[in-house]
């Protein structure tokens, strides 16, 4: 494998870890192709332009501080794969 290919593989492994996904054998080529495609955005001249996160850039409208939600535990837990005594349960997390 070329140096590029190795670093791509490492990058993909890193990303998979960050995204908690397992990568298959086919994913490498796909990733490389898309990553290369995305590089094209660098060719656009964006000097002096501010990034735009959302079309709605007006000031945020705030909500009154009121308890009008929550206390829906049964509904909350209804779709859970595993619960006990009102808690969500997962395999033990080692700190």
């Amino acid at each position: 494998m070329s140096e590029d290919e190795i670093s791509q593989k490492e990058q993909l492994a890193r990303l998979a870890r960050l995204a908690r996904l397992r990568v298959g054998t086919g994913d490498s080529a796909d990733f490389a192709a898309m990553a290369a495609w995305f590089e094209k955005i660098k060719t656009i001249d964006t000097q002096g332009i501010e990034p735009m996160t959302n079309p709605r850039e007006e000031n945020a409208r705030l909500r009154e501080d009121r308890v009008d939600d929550g206390d829906v535990r049964d509904a909350l837990l209804a779709n859970a794969p595993e619960t006990q005594h009102g808690f969500f349960v997962v395999p033990k997390v080692i700190e």
Partner: peptide, 8 residues
């Protein structure tokens, strides 16, 4: 009590 003060 657990998960009583939790909204969706």
């Amino acid at each position: 009590e657990p998960n009583r003060q939790v909204s969706f």
